[in-house]
Design a protein around this nucleic acid. Structure first.
Length: 688
DNA sequence: GGGGACACTGTGC
DNA sequence: TTCCAGCACAGTGTCCCC
C-alpha cells in the first residue's frame, strides 16, 4: 500500500519542499515504509503561500538565528574555557551517576492508535480501511492503514485527504474514548494502584512489587497485562519495561503495535541501549532542540550528549544541561511523585480570522462562560487571567493580569478579559483563548492534603456537591477510574522534563500571601486617591501608565458599562500610553555616561557582583555586563533621588497604589541584562 | 538577590 | 468544498519591587 519513492533523482534545487521541515515525516510507529519525500512534497505544496506557511518560515528563520548565535558562542570558547566547563560537566556527571536507581521496574503502556481503534470496535466496517479520527481542519489520530500513506495525528485533514484520497474521517467522540480508557485503567490498577495516567491512552506503572510478590519478570507482567487489556476491551496495546519511566516510554515504542520491549535493570544494558538512541526519541526533545543539538554540537544520539558534556554545560542553563546529561546517562524518574494538582485551566477556540469587534466580543463572552463553567465544575478560583490571541498571520500573543481577588464567575472573568482584549484592538485574529492560573489552593495549604481540594465554601450547595464528586483526587486504595481521569486532568500526568524536575529542589515555594483581604473599602479609597495624585513626578506618571496598560485595574464600578461600550472605546488610549513609556525609556537610556573600565571579574570567569560566569574572551558580553551593573547603580541613585521628592503621604499612597495595581507592562530595558548576549534566548540561554 | 508577574517558546498528546 | 486544534505544563528572559 505504501507509495513508492519518487523524485529521488531530481536535483535538490528543484525540490524546495526539502527545506520545509514538518513533523509529519518523523518516524512514528506504523510509518516505516512511508515515502517521506512524497509526503514532504505534498505537505509543502498544500501549504506554500499560506499564512501558516509564512509563519512557519518565520519560525524556521528564528531557529536558524538561534543556531547561528549559539554556534558563534561555541566558536568563541577557548581551550581553557572548554577545559573549565569539562571539569564542571564531569563533576555533574559523577553526581548524576550517584542518583542512578536500578531497583525499580517501570512499565509504560501505550494503547495502539487508541481513538481509531475504539472507533473500529464500534464500527467493524472500518476494519482494514484507512481511517482518521478528526475533521478537515485537524485529525487526532489515524489507524495503521492510513499511516502507510503518511497520514498521522496533528495533520490537517485536507492534507491527509490529499495523501490518501480514500481516507475515511470519523468525528471525535471523547465520551467513547473515556469509557474505554476507564476499562484499561481498571486493568492497570491490578498491577499498580498508584499508576500514573499520562493521557487517556498511556500510563506508567511501577511493577516492582508485583514482580517480587509473584516472583515473575517484568516481561511476564507486560505480557499478562496486555492480554488482560485485550480481553477487557478488545483493544491492543504496547508496553515497555525499564528501570525508569523515561526509558520505559522509549521501550514501549520499539515494538509497536501490539508488542513489548524489555530493558534489563542493569547499568551496562542501559548504557548500551542509550548509546545509539536518537535524541528525538526522548520525551522533551522536540524539533527545535533536536536541530540545535545537531547543528551546533553535532549531537544525534544520546551517547553524544556525554561526549559533548563540556560545551553543553558552557552554553546551556544549569537545568537544561542537567537534563541533557541525564539523558546521556539513561537516567529517568524512578519514584512515584506525589499527586499534583492542575496549575491552570484554559479554553481556546479557532475561527475564521476576523477583526469585527462585535464578533470578537461575542467570542470572549462565550470563552468566559465556558471557563467559568469548567472552573465551577472543578471547584477552582484563580487570580491570574491570561488572554491568548493568534493573529491572522498565526503570531501568538498572550496578555495577562493578576488580580487581588480570586475569581471564578463568568462576569468577573469577562470583565477582566474584556479589558485585556480592548488594549489589543484593533486586531485581526483567528484564535482566542482564556486561561486562569494562580489558583486559590496554591496559597492556603490545600496542596498538602489532596482530599481538601474542594472550595465548597466558595459556591452554592449545588456546586459544592459537584466539586466533591469530581475533586477528591486521591491516589490510594479506593482510587477509581473517574478519579484517575481527574488525576490526568489535574496534572498527575508526567511532565516532559521529569528528569530535570527530579533534579531540582522541590521545596514548597507556594508561600504567597493571599492579598484578597486587602480589598477593603479603605483600600479602594486609597486607590481613588492615588488616581488624583498630582502628576508632576514623572515616575508616578509612568507607573500609572504602566499599570493601566496591562492591568487596567482601576476596576471601578462602571466596569460593566465599560464592557458594554467596548467597541466604542477601542484604541482610544493604548497608543498614547505606549508612546509615553517609550519616551521615558529613551530618556533613561541616554543618561548613561560612565566609566566603562568598571572591572568586576574574579577567577577569570565570575562577576563579583552577581556571580554570572562569562569567559574572558567574551569581551563584548563582558562589557555589556559591566555596563548593566553600572546602569543599575545609576538607576538606583535616580530612584532614591526621586523618592526623596515625594511627601510622606504621597509615598504611602503611591506604594499602596502600586501594590494594589500590581506590576505594569514591562518597561523597555535601559541597560543590557547580564548574559543578554550570551547564548541566545529563552531555552537556550545560559542562566546568569 | 530573591521572587512575583508577565511574555514567549517548546513540547507532548 | 472543506485549508494547520486544544489543552497543559515547564523553562527562560525580562522587568520590577522589597
Amino acid at each position: 500500500m505504501a507509495a513508492k519513492n519518487s523524485d529521488e533523482t531530481a536535483p535538490s534545487s528543484s525540490r524546495p519542499w526539502q527545506t520545509y521541515h514538518t513533523v509529519f515525516t518523523n518516524a512514528k510507529a506504523g510509518m516505516e515504509g512511508v515515502d517521506k519525500e512524497k509526503v514532504q512534497r505534498i505537505v509543502y505544496e498544500m501549504s506554500k503561500g499560506s499564512k501558516y506557511y509564512e509563519n512557519e518560515a518565520r519560525k524556521e528563520a528564528d531557529m536558524k538565528v538561534k543556531i547561528e548565535n549559539m554556534r558563534s558562542q561555541y566558536a568563541k570558547l577557548t581551550a581553557s574555557d572548554i577545559s573549565h566547563y569539562q571539569k564542571v560537566a564531569d563533576k555533574r556527571i559523577l553526581e548524576l551517576e550517584t542518583t542512578r536507581d536500578l531497583s525499580r521496574i517501570w512499565l509504560h503502556v501505550d494503547m495502539d492508535a487508541f481513538y481509531a481503534a475504539v472507533e473500529t470496535l464500534s464500527d467493524q466496517s472500518l476494519k482494514g480501511k484507512p481511517m482518521a479520527v478528526g475533521g478537515m481542519s485537524m485529525i487526532s489520530t489515524a489507524n495503521y492503514e492510513a499511516r502507510k500513506f503518511g497520514v498521522r495525528a496533528a495533520m490537517p485533514g485536507f492534507i491527509a485527504r490529499k495523501l490518501c484520497p480514500e481516507l475515511i474521517f470519523v468525528p471525535v467522540d471523547f465520551k467513547k474514548y473515556t469509557h474505554y480508557s476507564d476499562l484499561t485503567r481498571k486493568v492497570f490498577q491490578r498491577y499498580d494502584q498508584n499508576f500514573m495516567a499520562a493521557s487517556l491512552d498511556e500510563a506508567y506503572l511501577d511493577i516492582t512489587d508485583v514482580c517480587s510478590k509473584r516472583a515473575i519478570t517484568g516481561a511476564e507482567v507486560a505480557e499478562e497485562l496486555r492480554e488482560l487489556v485485550y480481553v477487557e476491551t478488545g483493544l491492543t496495546c504496547s508496553a515497555g519495561v525499564a528501570p525508569n519511566r523515561l526509558l520505559a516510554k522509549v521501550c514501549s515504542d520499539i515494538n509497536k503495535p501490539n508488542g513489548q520491549f524489555i530493558l534489563p535493570n542493569e547499568r551496562i544494558a542501559v548504557v548500551t541501549f542509550i548509546s545509539s538512541l536518537p535524541i528525538r526519541k526522548i520525551g522533551g526533545i522536540g524539533k527545535v532542540t533536536e536541530n540545535v543539538l545537531k547543528e551546533v554540537f553535532g549531537i544525534s544520539t544520546c551517547e553524544e550528549m556525554l561526549q559533548k558534556s563540556g560545551p553543553l554545560c558552557a552554553l546551556f542553563s544549569h537545568s537544561s544541561a542537567a537534563f541533557f546529561l541525564s539523558v546521556g546517562l539513561g537516567l529517568g524518574g524512578t519514584d512515584t511523585p506525589q499527586a499534583k494538582f492542575r496549575k491552570s485551566i484554559s479554553n481556546e477556540r479557532t475561527f475564521s480570522a476576523t477583526k469585527d469587534e462585535a464578533l470578537l466580543y461575542k467570542k470572549i463572552v462565550e470563552l468566559a462562560e465556558m471557563l467559568s463553567a469548567d472552573m465551577k465544575k472543578e471547584g477552582l478560583s484563580g487570580r491570574t487571567l491570561t488572554l491568548k490571541l493568534k493573529t491572522a498571520s498565526f503570531e501568538v500573543r498572550t496578555r495577562a493580569v493578576t488580580l487581588q481577588n480570586y475569581i471564578y464567575s463568568s462576569e468577573d472573568i469577562l470583565k477582566h478579559a474584556s479589558k485585556l482584549l480592548k488594549a489589543e484592538l484593533p486586531i485581526s485574529i483567528r484564535l482566542m483563548g482564556l486561561r486562569m492560573s494562580h489558583f486559590r489552593e496554591d496559597h492556603d495549604g490545600f496542596l498538602g492534603d489532596p482530599t481538601q481540594k474542594t472550595l465548597s465554601s466558595f459556591f452554592g450547595p449545588g456546586d459544592a456537591k459537584k466539586v466533591k464528586a469530581d475533586d477528591n483526587v486521591t491516589i490510594g486504595n479506593d482510587v477509581d477510574a473517574s478519579c484517575l481521569a481527574a488525576n490526568k486532568e489535574t496534572g498527575l500526568a508526567l511532565d516532559n522534563h521529569e528528569l530535570c524536575c527530579d533534579l531540582r529542589d522541590h521545596s514548597d515555594t507556594n508561600q504567597v500571601l493571599d492579598h484578597s483581604s486587602h480589598t477593603s473599602s479603605k483600600y479602594c479609597m486609597e486607590m481613588e486617591e492615588s488616581d488624583k495624585l498630582p502628576s508632576n513626578a514623572s515616575e508616578v506618571k509612568l507607573n500609572s501608565l504602566n499599570t493601566s496598560r496591562h492591568q487596567p485595574s482601576s476596576y471601578k464600578s462602571d466596569d460593566a458599562q465599560e464592557i458594554k461600550t467596548l467597541s466604542r472605546l477601542v484604541g482610544e488610549s493604548s497608543i498614547g500610553q505606549r508612546l509615553q513609556q517609550d519616551q521615558f525609556s529613551n530618556n533613561a537610556g541616554s543618561s548613561s555616561n560612565y566609566n566603562k573600565e568598571f572591572s568586576l571579574w574574579v577567577d577569570d570567569y565570575k562577576c563579583s557582583l552577581c556571580g554570572a560566569e562569562i569567559p574572558p574572551n567574551f569581551i563584548e558580553e563582558r562589557q555589556d555586563h559591566s555596563d548593566f551593573h553600572f546602569a543599575e547603580r545609576l538607576q538606583e541613585e535616580e530612584s532614591n533621588n526621586y523618592n526623596g521628592n515625594l511627601t510622606l503621604k504621597q509615598r504611602i499612597v503611591e506604594k499602596e497604589r502600586i501594590r494594589s495595581h500590581g506590576r505594569g507592562k514591562k518597561k523597555q530595558k535601559i541597560a543590557p541584562t547580564p548574559g543578554k548576549h550570551l547564548p541566545i534566548d529563552v531555552f537556550f540561554s545560559k542562566r546568569t
